[in-house]
Computed example of a mutant assay.
Amino acid sequence: MRTMREKSVVLVAVSAACCLSSLVVAAQPPAPIQQVEIVADKMCCAGCARKVSGQLYAAKGVRDVAVDLKAHTVKVTLPQPSAAKLGQLWHYVEQSDGGPTKLVTAAATYTLIRPKADANTAQQLPPQSSPLYVVIDNLHCQGCAKKIAAQIYAIKGVTKVSVDMAKETLTVETARDTQISPWAVIDAVSRAKERPLAVLGSHGQLTIEWANKATPKNHQQAQQPNLGGLQR
């Protein structure tokens, strides 16, 4: 059995370790605060503004929401957002009938061109699965394509990813009657440490204009056209 002196030494050591751990946590710098501006074309009245801002405040980490009705814009203040968080903010504005068409951060501008409605369509048809086409900034080699495909395959409902190296484009196919958000694909590409330039599909065309040019790549692997599927 331990003596009282040994127990005291153990308690002091544990206490010191806990204090050191607290100091390490306290020393970590807080995430930088950024502002995201979203253009909501359908936000036209005070009621719309309250609905949009109420949805955005529900997003974890949001510090402030400022609405400019005249400009149809909403500015969201929060810690530096990931691509997934940007997609969540966009979804909340969409969900509150704000009709988002543009999202601007310090790093990039995301612009959506929606498909034109068919005036001859008598009723709303149920959603059908359709492929997404993802244009990548400087898709240099098959290794890069496989790295992106691995992340896209992690999205529920994705059945096949194929690549056209000449066009720097990946085609994403999904299960029947399954549609995935273009923001989910953007997040997947970001997690692969690559940059998307556009995502085209039934949602329309979502383009990304980056504030800074991509860092040049120097891969040894040759870039060869390939229209085949990328395996899981």
Rank of each mutant, 00 (worst) to 15 (best):
L86H: 09
Y92R: 08
G98F: 00
L69C: 11
A117Q: 10
L69Y: 04
L86Q: 04
L112S: 02
E94L: 02
L86P: 01
Q55A: 06
K116V: 15
V62L: 08
G98A: 01
D118W: 04
A107C: 05
V74P: 00
G87P: 01
P81I: 15
V93M: 01
S129N: 10
A106C: 08
A106I: 14
S82Q: 04
G54R: 03
A66P: 04
G87Q: 04
L78S: 12
S130T: 09
K102E: 14
D137L: 03
Y92A: 02
K75Y: 10
A117R: 05
V93I: 04
K70A: 15
E94H: 02
K102R: 15
V67I: 15
N120V: 11
S53M: 03
L103I: 15
Q128I: 13
Y133F: 14
H72G: 03
L132N: 03
V93A: 00
N120M: 11
S130M: 11
V93N: 00
A107R: 10
H91R: 13
T73F: 10
L132A: 08
A84D: 06
V104I: 14
S130H: 07
V134E: 01
L78M: 15
I136K: 03
P127I: 13
H140T: 11
K85Y: 03
A59D: 00
V65D: 01
